[in-house]
C-alpha cells in the first residue's frame, strides 16, 4: 500500500523510544515515575544475579557411585570418548546368610573430561542402572584445561544438585522417574 514518505522513519523512531521508556520505567502506578532500568532490562547481570536454568538443562553430569556396575556402556557410547573407566572384581559377602560370596565390580576410576564432552547426554541415557544424572549446574569453569577432568569424587558431589524429574504434560504415557537419593 502506498504511504507518504517518512511515515516509516517516524514509526521506527517510535519503536526505539517506546522500548527505552519500557526499560527505564517498568513499574506500574505512581512508581512508574521512578526510573528503575535494572528491573526493566531483559539482561541479567551475571555474577551478581543468576538465571535459574530449566530443571532438565544439561549442565553437568552427576555420578551415583553405588549404582555403577562398571559395565562400560557409557564409555562405549560416548561420541567423543571422553569417559574413562577402570574397575576391578571383588568378593562381597553373600546376600543371605549361608549363601555363596558374590562377585561385584568395584569402581576404581570414573573420569569425565569436560574439555572434550559435547553434552549430548547419551551416556546418561544408556546407563541401565541409574548411575548417571544431569544437573543444571553450570559454574565449574577452570583456569587450567586439565582441571576440567572431573574424577568420581567430583562427579559424586554434583549428585546433590540433581533436581527431581518433572511431572509430564497431559496425554503423556512416559513413566515418571525418580532420582535415587
Amino acid at each position: 500500500m502506498p504511504q507518504p514518505k517518512g511515515i516509516g522513519l517516524v514509526k521506527g523512531l517510535g519503536v526505539t523510544l517506546k522500548e527505552m521508556g519500557r526499560t527505564m520505567f517498568p513499574r506500574q502506578g505512581v512508581m512508574k515515575l521512578v526510573p528503575s532500568p535494572t528491573q526493566g532490562a531483559v539482561t541479567v547481570q551475571y555474577p551478581h544475579e543468576k538465571e535459574a536454568p530449566a530443571p532438565r538443562a544439561r549442565g553437568v553430569i552427576a555420578l551415583k557411585e553405588e549404582n555403577c556396575t562398571v559395565c562400560m556402556l557409557c564409555a562405549r557410547s560416548c561420541p567423543d570418548w571422553c569417559i574413562y573407566i577402570e574397575g576391578h572384581k571383588e568378593k562381597a559377602p553373600p546376600r543371605r546368610a549361608g549363601g555363596k560370596p558374590r562377585t561385584v565390580s568395584a569402581l576404581d576410576r570414573f573420569d569425565i573430561d569436560y574439555a572434550l564432552c559435547m553434552y549430548c547426554g547419551i551416556c546418561v541415557e544408556v546407563c541401565p542402572f541409574d548411575a548417571l544424572f544431569w544437573s543444571p549446574e553450570y559454574e565449574y569453569s577452570e583456569l587450567r584445561i586439565a582441571d576440567l577432568l572431573h574424577d568420581k569424587e567430583r562427579l559424586g558431589e554434583w549428585m546433590e544438585t540433581v533436581p527431581d524429574f518433572e511431572p509430564y504434560e497431559a496425554g503423556s504415557e512416559a513413566k515418571p522417574r525418580k532420582v535415587p537419593r
Binding site: 532438565r56 518433572e166 509430564y168
Partner: peptide, 24 residues
C-alpha cells in the same frame, strides 16, 4: 531447553521417536 535440556544442541530426536516427553 525446558524440554530437551539444551539450548543450542537439543539432541532430542531418536530413531523411533523422542528421548523424553514434554514437562507439565
Amino acid at each position: 531447553e525446558a524440554v530437551t535440556g539444551g539450548r543450542f544442541h537439543p539432541n532430542f530426536d531418536r530413531i523411533g521417536g523422542l528421548r523424553d516427553d514434554l514437562p507439565k
